[in-house]
Design a protein around this nucleic acid. Structure first.
Lengths: 249, 249
DNA sequence: AAAAAAATTGCAAGAATTTGCGGATTTATT
DNA sequence: AATAAATCCGCAAATTCTTGCAATTTTTTT
């Protein structure tokens, strides 16, 4: 069996099981463990997998368990929030989705600003409860415990009855062709309603989410007015979006 | 199972339950407690959790447990909650008001119990979001920032549509003649609706609130089924209540 | 086609990591 | 103060990793 075939096999196994064991691969591929290790090492150097003692895991798995992410990511989220806060003005009615970027945004809204904010996220509501001059309306419903947001038909109904000036939306996936996408159907539906209820839509989008496609479409790209990103991007990445009428900040 | 998988599992458990026990993890992961401890130690050194005797807590929890001390009469509230928890049984639909006693109650509901809980209090919802088997329905509305509960017409409407088996109610004032009373008109009105929606009404009443009268009446004494108090009281204090059909625990 | 060079593979030996266990020690609880 | 539980420490066994090297195969060069 050729090296390249082995590599392909390993990647395939990894996709299927999210992890591979050196010993098992040695058996499956009928080569020595040393060879397997050398294969894994090579694939790891090409960032196709994450090598650990005893085998290897997918890259995503690595990210999940490494703290680098949460720290580095927080900076990015804060820098997005910092830009977003300038779009908030006295008298506005605002809808905020339940993303962590919005939690950061909630933290830094200046205390003098007088606005009404609709949200269905517990952490955001808690944050906003410390702001004297913000009127907070919590959108009730069944609680999704992991995300600490309400979901379900009640949320959809409530959101449909709102008329908002601006809407700050966390992003799971953003792509020129497919538009804004979400891995969860219910969330996708709620976001759709939020956008329908708002005059102006702002997407808070970490650059890692750009050109990523999730399972369910929220809205096409042209329904989004402004995308706020954490770092300046090359012109050729932005151009296709801007041709759809999306403004980048 | 690879070390990193264990770590990922621990982090996930922690996210869900805010705490993990070494013994339980050892069982779940099928490794020795020593190994679990070593894992926790490593994760703690990376500031992904906070190690304590017997297990670990989330970083946030570490901070959270400090301001807990500022809550007055915590012991009394906990002793009330301890008694109240025995009234909760599988399959019930429960309404909880927004008192601090109810927060304590929410904390100690056994994890195996399967119930549906309606609440309009952010802290209670946060607490309950860590219980695997409780369905939480949050009642939306305008946020009262100080109490971190929703209020207003939306809450009244929602509560009116609920049919609950039991209702746990924090108490501001309780008097034989005037019944249960509240200093806030809106809260009094909401509590009235809650009681109307419930088959059985439990008042969680610190003894300091007994024979105290607030501005607005919620319901007369006889509408309350059980009052849970923190300390045994003299017969002559209880007797007039019991004559109205109220049971004391 | 032959020779040289490069890459691949398995093996062996020693190093490093991981894990469970017994026993001493510390911590929590009553 | 006593008891039980959890932790820490050192050790040993098992597994995995690294490294150098030799044999083999593949590729390149002449």
């Amino acid at each position: 069996m050729l090296k390249l075939e082995r590599h392909a096999f390993i990647i395939k196994q990894l996709k299927q099981h999210r992890k591979v064991l050196s010993a098992k691969l040695s058996d499956q591929l009928q080569v020595s463990e040393d060879t397997v290790r050398r294969d894994l090492k090579e694939l790891a150097s090409r960032h196709l997998l994450f090598k650990v003692h005893g085998g290897a895991l997918t890259i995503e798995n690595k990210i999940l368990s490494f703290d680098e992410r949460s720290v580095a990511d927080l900076d990015k989220k804060r820098s997005i929030a910092k830009k977003a806060v300038h779009l908030i003005h006295d008298g506005q009615v605002i809808i905020m989705s339940g993303s962590t970027v919005n939690v950061e945004l909630a933290k830094i809204i200046p205390s003098h600003i007088r606005v009404t904010i609709f949200t269905y996220s517990l952490p955001i509501a808690i944050e906003l409860s410390h702001h004297e001059s913000i009127e907070v309306i919590f959108i009730g419903g069944k609680l999704n415990k992991l995300a600490q947001v309400t979901v379900g038909i009640d949320v959809v109904n409530s959101v449909s009855n709102i008329r908002a000036d601006i809407c700050f939306m966390g992003v799971s996936g953003m792509d020129v062709v497919r538009g804004m996408t979400e891995p969860d159907w219910e969330v996708a539906h709620i976001k759709k309603c939020m956008i329908a209820a708002s005059d102006y839509v702002v997407a808070l989008c970490q650059s890692s989410k750009l050109n990523k496609i999730e399972r369910y479409v929220v809205v096409p790209t042209q329904n989004i007015d402004t995308v706020i990103i954490d770092e300046p991007l090359e012109e050729d990445v932005l151009k296709p979006f801007e041709e759809q009428g999306v403004q980048f900040v």
